[in-house]
Design a protein around this nucleic acid. Structure first.
Lengths: 188, 188
DNA sequence: AAAGTAAGTATCGACTCGATACTTATTTCA
DNA sequence: TGAAATAAGTATCGAGTCGATACTTACTTT
């Protein structure tokens, strides 16, 4: 069984990460899943900052995510605003307090320490390997990729040379194209 | 910040794995953490099959682990036996039912699918990268390695040519040296 | 306008997990 | 040798997770 060893590693890694996340989060009254939501919101684009997008990203139900968001809002770490076009939709935005907290906790200190000791080359290899694995997982299970616009098949250029999304038919800034989008589809 | 991208990947991977584990576990009435305990017990050696070892491996408190184990015992997935030498200590052992269940759920189908699509070479690279990362994490944070006896500094040979552990002063079988030990220390 | 659908919320129950206090067994050491 | 310290594990509590279900509100379809 080839995937056995791989699973051993993944489970261990996952457990180490989660334990560390729990430990550093608890000092600020945050659960692992809450940190994950904050982190996601800090890297997603303006079409992907809704509760539903979080739901898809985390693979939970919308009820569960709704709870998590409520708590984060009460803690003053994020702000909820109704969409002006479709009032069923909410947009979530980190507050300054939220950003500050995230900056201190993510990436977790444990990981930073480990990275410092790794040579540049190993670092690159690991990053590449992880990316490859994630892609394989998503593709072979027909899941959304949640990649950055830059690598999306809908991403193009407008006449003035700027970036342009052919799906939502909107221009994108340089910052935009480096953010995660829930509509992302890998370029062919 | 070099570790940022790495963290993005790790968090995503961890989340994907956990969601899948939750989904497949729920069908058998098992939580992710319960599956992790079962899996650990299936790969650890006879010095590492105690509640305390599980506690260290999962990075939780002994109270929490005690609960988890109690549930698994009630479900008939594992057996608890008192140590004959030190009656404070319990040894945990998967039942046939436990082994059967684990065989069906681990590795998770999602991962198996992904592995099938990955070329042999990529598979090896990913495995190596993960191992390297785990080692870096454990070393730079002074944590127990939980490696297999085969790679331990205490592992040696006895006069008759068999394996021998210089820490517990006991001979080890061929099967033994491929199992995870809580006393494991990386060879110098 | 009515039915259908989508986004999000409210509530409930089973479960996790840390904290604290406890029991029992072993070790230390005066 | 006997009391204190320590170790392994359990019991209990409370805050929080998470899925299921039912609901509200808003948009879409026909």
């Amino acid at each position: 069984m080839e995937s056995n060893q791989l699973y051993n590693h993944l489970e261990r890694l996952s457990e180490l990460l989660r334990t560390d996340l729990r430990k550093s989060g608890i000092e600020h009254g945050l659960q692992p899943v809450q940190l994950e939501v904050l982190h996601y919101l800090s890297v997603c684009n303006r079409y992907s900052d809704t509760p539903l997008a979080v739901t898809e990203y985390l693979g939970q139900t919308k009820g569960t995510v709704s709870q998590t968001i409520k708590v984060l809002e009460q803690k003053g770490l994020l702000l909820k605003r109704s969409d002006t076009e479709d009032r069923r939709v909410s947009h979530l935005e980190l507050t300054k307090k939220g950003h500050k907290l995230l900056d201190r906790l993510v990436p977790p200190p444990m990981l930073i320490k480990a990275c410092d000791k790794l040579p540049q080359k190993a670092h690159k290899q690991i990053n590449h390997a992880l990316h490859q694995l994630i892609m394989a997982l998503l593709q072979s299970n027909g899941m959304k990729s949640f990649g950055v616009c830059h690598t999306c098949r809908y991403n193009g250029r407008s006449e003035d040379g700027g970036y342009y999304c052919n799906l939502v038919q909107q221009p994108l800034s340089v910052d935009d194209v480096q953010r995660i989008c829930r509509e992302h589809e890998t370029a062919a």
